[in-house]
Amino acid sequence: MASAESNAAVPAAPQSAAPAASGIADPGALGLAAFAMTTFVLSFFNAGLINESVENVVLPLAFFYGGIIQLLAGMWEFRRGNTFAATAFASFGGFWLAFAGYSSQVAPHLNPAHAYQATGLFLLAWAIFTGYMCLAALRTSVAVLAVFVTLTVTFVLLTIGAFDQSTSITKAGGWVGLVTAVVAWYASAATVTNNTWKRELLPTWPLA
């Protein structure tokens, strides 16, 4: 699939107010890391920093790390009673699996004259989902909210770039996608570091 297809993908895990189920560790750091790395790699292509002829390097990441690992993180969040993180991780795990399938199995067989419309519609649907998740993220933390806001901007830019067939807008989406990945990596690092040290070393600035 052309590099304009998507950056995204990702869910971010809030600091849940619900108590964790006994024996279930916080899967937020894992889900965020999977999102961040996959988004980082794809965004390099969308931003035009690497030749798109080798873009398929993102497919294994999209399937195994961004897809399966985030889906598992979402299921663990359901077990912990965290509706927001479960919905986000499971959905974006599904996004990356769909992206991998679309890129490798569907896009090559679309009518070249209209393929951009399919890509634009795919991205638009995810922009809508990510946008309304921002509302729920207002009750999480600044770090998580920043992930969703930047991800929404990424999807919107990529959607416009796809429908308008604009390389420059797609590249802008790629750059915002890189910012999104860095923010998500920070949120992941804060979650795993603070949980391991049993105190706040990296702030996430809770909103609730």
Rank of each mutant, 00 (worst) to 15 (best):
F155I: 12
T170V: 15
V142I: 15
Y186G: 03
A181I: 10
G173L: 01
N51K: 05
A34G: 07
N7S: 13
F148H: 09
Q165V: 13
V106G: 01
A127N: 01
G174M: 06
L201P: 01
P112H: 06
L135H: 09
M1Q: 05
A125L: 10
G177N: 08
L157Q: 03
F155L: 14
P11I: 11
V144R: 02
L71Y: 06
G66M: 14
Q165K: 10
M1S: 03
A137Q: 09
G74A: 12
V58Q: 06
G161E: 02
L110F: 08
P206M: 03
M37E: 03
F64T: 10
P60I: 11
G93M: 07
I69C: 08
H109S: 03
N82Y: 05
V192M: 15
F163V: 04
A137N: 08
Y132M: 13
V54K: 05
F78V: 15
I128E: 00
N56H: 08
N194I: 12
F163Q: 00
T204Y: 04
L178H: 07
L124S: 01
W205N: 03
S168T: 15
S103T: 13
V41W: 01
E77R: 12
K171N: 11
T180D: 11
A184N: 04
V176F: 04
A2G: 05
A21M: 05
Q165W: 02
L135E: 02
G23A: 06
A73E: 07
L207N: 09
A85R: 09
A137E: 05
G48F: 12
V57E: 11
T191K: 10
F99C: 00
G161A: 04
E55G: 00
V54D: 08
L71I: 14
G31T: 15
L158H: 04
Y116H: 09
V153M: 10
T204W: 10
Y116D: 12
E52W: 07
L97I: 13
W96K: 06
N46F: 06
A13T: 15
A12Q: 11
A13D: 13
A184Q: 12
